[in-house]
């Protein structure tokens, strides 16, 4: 097994780590925003339909994943 190499770096390790943190935090925040909007919309629809109940569940999963991403980005800075 070969360990991660410092050769052939596109950017410094420090800059790369910041890039990953910003992308993770940014994408997660976007998910939180989009899924809170979708959840609000689904909650206004006819909940007797299975597809609407699934949309609500999916949005809750999306919100949770968004929160996991934001928390992960914050924890990586500590």
């Amino acid at each position: 097994m070969m360990a991660p190499s410092s050769e052939h770096l596109l950017v410094s390790h420090e800059a790369y780590r910041w890039f990953v943190t910003i992308v993770t935090g940014g994408a997660s925040s976007y998910w939180l925003f989009i899924d809170s909007f979708r959840l609000r919309k689904a909650l206004r629809a006819d909940r007797s339909k299975g597809v609407v109940r699934d949309q609500i569940f999916g949005s809750i999963v999306g919100l949770t994943i968004g929160a996991i991403g934001v928390l992960g980005a914050v924890l990586s800075l500590s």
Binding site: D54, G58, I65
Partner: peptide, 11 residues
């Protein structure tokens, strides 16, 4: 089409 699994695949 699973709305929850869509989010998991994106993750």
């Amino acid at each position: 089409r699973s709305f929850a699994m869509e989010r998991c695949v994106a993750f």
